[in-house]
Each structure stands twice: as C-alpha cells, then as structure tokens.
C-alpha cells in the first residue's frame, strides 16, 4: 500500500468518527460518483466552460480531502484555482494525470475498505 496516495490518519479518523460500515458505503458512493465528476471536468474542458470546470474540480477536491487522498486533492485543487488553461493541450495532460491518481486512490480505498 502506498501511504502517499491515502493519508491513513485522515482515513482512520473518518472511520472512527462515523463507523467502519458507514465509511465502506461512503467509499462505494465515491467510486460511483467519481467517474461522473471526471467526465464533467472533461466535458467542461471541451466546452471551455470555466464555471463548470472549476465546480467539478472543487467537488473532486472536496471528496479527495474527505478520504485523505492527498495527491488527488492537490491535483484537483490546482485545477480549481488555475481554471481553464489558455492551452487546452496542457489541461488534457493534467486531466490524464488526475484520472490516473483517481484510479490509484480508488484502488487504495477499496483495499482499506476491505481491510
């Protein structure tokens, strides 16, 4: 397991304050909702809709923070603060990195949920 993907202390606190069973449900919800947020980011990039782009990044950041997904949070926050790049190609590259980090976070969260 990679400590740099999910901050164990944050995850443990979430589990301790809300219950293991509830956190398992919450992880499942995140796994269900995450692809939609990533798709929203891509769609907003295609449409050059800055508001949609910022809001989708904000939502991912917020959930990343909840689970202690450190890198995912940082990448999403960067998009939220920076907004749409003047060069779409740079955003597309960034989005691929974000999606890869999301996949890693989900894999870690699944392991933690089952562990």
């Amino acid at each position: 397991m990679d400590e740099s993907v999910i901050d164990r202390a944050v995850y443990a606190e979430l589990r301790d304050t809300t219950g293991a069973e509830f956190v398992a449900e919450l992880v499942d919800t995140f796994i269900e909702e995450g692809p939609g947020m990533l798709a929203e980011l891509r769609a907003a990039r295609v449409e050059s809709n800055a508001e949609r782009f910022r809001r989708a990044a904000h939502s991912l950041k917020s959930n990343g923070r909840t689970f202690g997904a450190v890198k995912l949070t940082a990448l999403a926050r960067e998009f939220e603060l920076k907004g749409l790049d003047a060069d779409p190609v740079r955003d597309v590259g960034g989005l691929a990195a974000l999606e890869a980090e999301y996949a890693r976070a989900v894999a870690e969260l699944k392991a933690l949920r089952n562990g």
Binding site: T17, T18, F22, E25, L26, T29, E33, S62, T66
Partner: peptide, 17 residues
C-alpha cells in the same frame, strides 16, 4: 450540498449528534 459524498457524510455526522 450538490455532492453526494458530502451530503451522506454530513447527514451521518448530524444524526450521530
């Protein structure tokens, strides 16, 4: 809250209180 994870988590927190 528009985010489902946030809604569920806040709802849980409120009900635990």
């Amino acid at each position: 809250d528009d985010n489902k994870v946030n809604r569920l988590l806040l709802s849980r927190s409120v009900e635990l209180l």
